[in-house]
Amino acid sequence: MKAFEYVSTASADIAVKALGGVDGAILAGGTDLLSRMKDYVTTPKRVVDFNPQSVVQKETSPGGVPTWTILAGTTLADLLASKALREELPALWQAASEVGTPQIKNMATIAGNLLQRPRCWYYRSGFGLLSVKDGKNLLREGDNRYASIFHTDGDALFVAPSSLAVPLIALGASATILGPKGERTVMVSSLYQIPKRDSDRELTIGADEVLTKITLPAPQGKNATYEARQKQSHDWPLVLASVSLRFDGASVSQASIVIGGVAPIPYRAVEAEKAMFGKPVTLETAEAVAANAINGVKPLSGNVYKVALTKTVVKRALLAAVGNRYWEEV
């Protein structure tokens, strides 16, 4: 790790000031940033150790929809300790429960999870986000078993790494960001973009901005996450999907279906969402809807398996939302 200067603060205002005009990086839980720094992939001049509160809160405003607020410093362990969150936001709870290890859950924060950089092994080996070398896309030509299957026409073939972004987008969450010009609020989905050039970032947040909190309306209906991965212990998801469904009687009146591990941004399966409209969630409808989720898929040489996996994961997330866990052994 290269030497750096260090600032520690619990204040977002000070964090923003400390980031101003320098090549700086925000340190949250540290498991991502410090690993990148050890590999010399990221070499900030200044590390701003931003350690805000760990708070999960649900508030009712008079006459309005109750709102969940999760402050940036909320650790995954604290998120998982909230019984109310587990009951009302199982999609988020489930995704958080599958992240990392007991140690990582104590260290990692929601902001750090959302803003972590890709795990793509070319990026982590120092070949840049797009891993293009001498005009050749290393990920396209090389080992792309974990890479994208959607949006693969461009050079960004890594997959967005945040497991929590997937349920948060499905649940319609917003992120509040503080910068030198003040505060702004964006949808969590807008935190991500597909980089076109190596100098682009996959994150839309500015280098001198900090994420301060996540808010989301209390969901009306059911939500769930399903994740597939190789190991049962600590591992990254191969594919995960979160769904948030509203019902009119037994039929779905609104569906959000978001898939992780398949694209450089959390992938919204719009056609599947439309296909779900007006139907009850059954084995048959879920199967058919999941087939819509892979419309437009363009896998790479080594990740064709992810197409079948994606279908399964979407199907299971839908069924999990209505309590049908058909795949579990009795």
């Binding site: 795990r119 092994w121 070319y122 070949f127 290393l138 090389g142 190789q230 600590h234 591992d235 990254w236």
Partner: peptide, 17 residues
């Protein structure tokens, strides 16, 4: 291993499972 640049892609204890 990556064929193009010739490096090991998982010299760690995370993606080396």
């Amino acid at each position: 291993m990556d064929p193009t640049v010739g490096i090991m892609l998982n010299p760690d204890m995370e993606l080396y499972k």
